[in-house]
Design a protein around this nucleic acid. Sequence first.
DNA 1: GCAATGATTGACAGTCACTGACACTTCCGG
DNA 2: CCGGAAGTGTCAGTGACTGTCAATCATTGC
Lengths: 197, 197
Amino acid sequence: MTAGTSLREVSRRAVQSRIARTAESLFSAKGFEETTVDEIAAAVGMSQRSFFRYFSSKDEVVLDSLERLGEDLASRLAERPSGEPEWDSLRRAFDLVVERFGDPVSREHDAAIQRIIDRSPRLLASYLCRLEHLQRMLTEALTARAGDGADPVVLRAMVGAAFACLHASAFPHIDEPDAFGPCLDRTMAALRPVDCR
Amino acid sequence: MTAGTSLREVSRRAVQSRIARTAESLFSAKGFEETTVDEIAAAVGMSQRSFFRYFSSKDEVVLDSLERLGEDLASRLAERPSGEPEWDSLRRAFDLVVERFGDPVSREHDAAIQRIIDRSPRLLASYLCRLEHLQRMLTEALTARAGDGADPVVLRAMVGAAFACLHASAFPHIDEPDAFGPCLDRTMAALRPVDCR
DNA sequence: GCAATGATTGACAGTCACTGACACTTCCGG
DNA sequence: CCGGAAGTGTCAGTGACTGTCAATCATTGC
């Protein structure tokens, strides 16, 4: 019954981010698999049980930030004019990621997270699952706006294709700063669907 | 030092498929998460320890068949004429999947597996990880054939896009038999990259 | 100021996936 | 008959996660 962000919610978020920061530095130092939840909890100064009250799994500590990115991406997409070709709307939504790459601080953070993910097959799996979920969200946003003129299967595939471009472009540019945006442009231009209105 | 398929390899495969069949029926009946490895081992008539000598994880029992599909897909792709546009080569490689859908027996089996996967988030994650690996394999096959004329990032993205089409087309046709092939054709035609030679 | 109430926590026990170590059997070539 | 190689069961242990319960802490109503 409380408004979206109650007082309790705020302090909960604060604890969560404290845990996340601690955990990420441990992960970067020792690796994800090699760091136990007990260690994280001890480093934060709480019991293992309490750790699981803030994050439903060890994976979630790392992937939590991705969740918010997904929501932002979806709202960006929703803001695009409905007349715009879907492919271009997706590209514009991805600007959010490009912008994050522009800021050195958040890029460094993102790169660290990506490194942690890439080094743990287990985490990578969860990560891909989140991406999948994210794609479903964007597909829904796109479907809602397209009305019933478009084929839902094609729309779903298009979102997947756009993400493939994003993924393929981001991968080689984790360490490189500014080449990412142009690379994404180039890739999405090359893969632009023929019958894109 | 032995040839690819030694006598021992064969019997190992036999045991593996016995385990897999047993496990899959248990998964279908009770669900993946609700079935313990102990139960599977007991049903097959071996110790838990031996189960893990045949499958490195519980996930693997389900995803093992996918591994072979990946290899077949890669070899199909390698067989395509190098002059053919990559997009079309990928579509032709996917015929393998379409053909599997044609056979009622294997379709029923695949559908059962897909149902198991979809109902377990944990399994779904592993599944997507395998798909990712599979895409990397196909990308390599494509890169090898394209020489150094093509952008590797674009190639990677194209494979991802093709898989997005496959995935999006397969999803609604698990139960429907023959609509799959045409749907895939339609989707891949709609998403065909503009500058596809 | 105080008691009832609800949220947060730690401690503990238990499940389950998975691993390493070791002892035992079987089978096969010498 | 003996040697080792391969396959197996048993056991103990780790680590992620869950349920439960009792203690604590803050809030609210009086």
